[in-house]
C-alpha cells in the first residue's frame, strides 16, 4: 500500500529445514518478504504451510535439533538477525521484537505468578527495580483490561481464564513497546466475543507506538480481512501470493487463494446450496509435487506445472504471484 514507508524487517530467501528420520523436511523453502513500519501484515496458510515456522525463524526460536535455518537473511534495522550471538539475540527478543503464541494455556509458566512473569520483562530489558517494575506491570495489566490488576498480580496462570491469559501474553509482549509484534494464531483458542476484544487490543497498540508493525499469523481469513493491510499467502513452504488486503479479497490471482476464498461459507451473500471446494488435501511434507506445490489440487493446471516451479512474479506494484498463468505479465517489462 504505502510503498514509500520504511522497511522494518526484510526476509531474504529464508529456508528452515527439519531433520525427520534421515529425511529433510523443507518447512520453509525460500521465503522473501518485507514488513513495513506501522503496518499489520497477515501471514495466512493452512497447517503445514510453514507460516508458524517463518514466525519462529525471525526470533530464532526454531528448536535445534531437529530444526535449523539452512540459509537466508533476516534484516532488522539493517542488522542480520541470523548473525547475532545468543546474548545479542536475547536482548532483541521481547524488547524490539516480541511474540504472542497460540496457546495461552502453555505459554505462561504455571509455577510463577503472573506478576513475577510480567516484572521479569522490565527487570531484564530495562534494569528496573522491583517496585518500579511492579507499578509498570500493574499499568500493563490495566491497559489490557484485566479487572482489579493490583490484586491479580499475585495470581497464578491457572487462576486466569483463557482470554485473560492471552491478554497477559499481550501485556507481556507489549511492555517494552516493541517495534515488531509477531502474533502466531493469537485468537484461535479463544471464543469469538473474546477474539474481538483481543484483536481490538492488538491493533490499538499502534496508538501506543506509532511505527510498530504487527505480523499476524493465522488461518482465519476473516481475521485477516478485518485487521491487516497486506497479506502474504503461503502453501507448501513457499509464498504463493502477496497483495494489499482489498486486492487479495476482491481480486485474488493465485488459484489457491481463489479456492480458499470461495470455500468459505458467506452468509452475508446469496445462499449457495453447495460450497465450492479445493479438491484433495494438503500433501504430507515429503510428498509435495516437484514443480508448483499446489499443482495436484489446482483446477487450472498446465503440463509444465508438474515439473517447473513458477517464480514469485511481481504483476503490479505491491502484488506478487507464484503461478505460471501470470508469466507474461511481469510488471515493469512492458508497462514502462
Amino acid at each position: 500500500m504505502e510503498n514509500n514507508t520504511k522497511k522494518l524487517l526484510e526476509i531474504h530467501s529464508l529456508r528452515t529445514y527439519f531433520c525427520v528420520e534421515d529425511q529433510i523436511a523443507k518447512a520453509v523453502d525460500g521465503v522473501d518478504f518485507d514488513i513495513y513500519e506501522g503496518e499489520t501484515l497477515g501471514l495466512v496458510g493452512e497447517s503445514g504451510s510453514g507460516k508458524s515456522v517463518t514466525g519462529l525463524s525471525i526470533l530464532r526460536l526454531i528448536p535445534n535439533p531437529p530444526g535449523f535455518i539452512k540459509e537466508g537473511n533476516i534484516l532488522f534495522h539493517g542488522k542480520n538477525l541470523l548473525d547475532l550471538s545468543y546474548t545479542e539475540m536475547r536482548k532483541i527478543r521481547g524488547k524490539e521484537i516480541s511474540m504472542i503464541f497460540q496457546e495461552p494455556m502453555t505459554s505462561l509458566n504455571p509455577v510463577f505468578s503472573i506478576g513475577y512473569q510480567l516484572m521479569e520483562v522490565f527487570r531484564f530489558h530495562q534494569n528496573m527495580e522491583k517496585e518500579e517494575a511492579f507499578e509498570r506491570s500493574v499499568e500493563m495489566l490495566e491497559l489490557v483490561g484485566i479487572p482489579d490488576p493490583r490484586r491479580r498480580m499475585n495470581d497464578y496462570p491457572h487462576q486466569y481464564s483463557g482470554g485473560m491469559r492471552q491478554r497477559v501474553m499481550i501485556a507481556m509482549a507489549l511492555s517494552c513497546k516493541p517495534s515488531l509484534l509477531i502474533a502466531d494464531e493469537p485468537t484461535t483458542a479463544l471464543d469469538v466475543t473474546i477474539q474481538a476484544q483481543v484483536l481490538d487490543l492488538m491493533v490499538n497498540i499502534k496508538k501506543e507506538k506509532v511505527n510498530a508493525a504487527i505480523l499476524l499469523i493465522t488461518h482465519d481469513l476473516g481475521v485477516v480481512a478485518e485487521t491487516c493491510q497486506r497479506v502474504v499467502v503461503m502453501y507448501g513452504g513457499k509464498i504463493q501470493e502477496i497483495a494489499p488486503v482489498h486486492e487479495l479479497f476482491h481480486d485474488p490471482r493465485h488459484p489457491y487463494t481463489m479456492g480458499l476464498l470461495k470455500s468459505l461459507p458467506r452468509p452475508d451473500r446469496i445462499k449457495q446450496d453447495r460450497l465450492p471446494t479445493i479438491p484433495g488435501m494438503v500433501p504430507e511434507i515429503f510428498h509435495f509435487p516437484k514443480g508448483c506445490k499446489f499443482c495436484n489440487r489446482c483446477d487450472r493446471k498446465m503440463e509444465k506445472c508438474e515439473t517447473i516451479e513458477p517464480e514469485l512474479l511481481e504483476i503490479s506494484p505491491g502484488r506478487k504471484v507464484r503461478c505460471h498463468l501470470f508469466e507474461g505479465q511481469k510488471h515493469g517489462t512492458d508497462a514502462k
Binding site: 481464564s161 469469538v192 477474539q195 474481538a196 476484544q197 484483536l199 481490538d200 476473516g222 480481512a225
Partner: peptide, 25 residues
C-alpha cells in the same frame, strides 16, 4: 454481539459493520 464479533472475509465490510464489543468475560 456474537454476530458482530464474527470476522467476515471481506475487508470492504470492515468499515460498514458496526462492532459491538462486549465487556468482560
Amino acid at each position: 454481539a456474537l454476530l458482530s464479533a464474527v470476522p467476515l472475509p471481506d475487508p470492504a465490510l470492515k468499515d460498514q459493520k458496526k462492532k459491538m464489543i462486549l465487556k468482560g468475560e
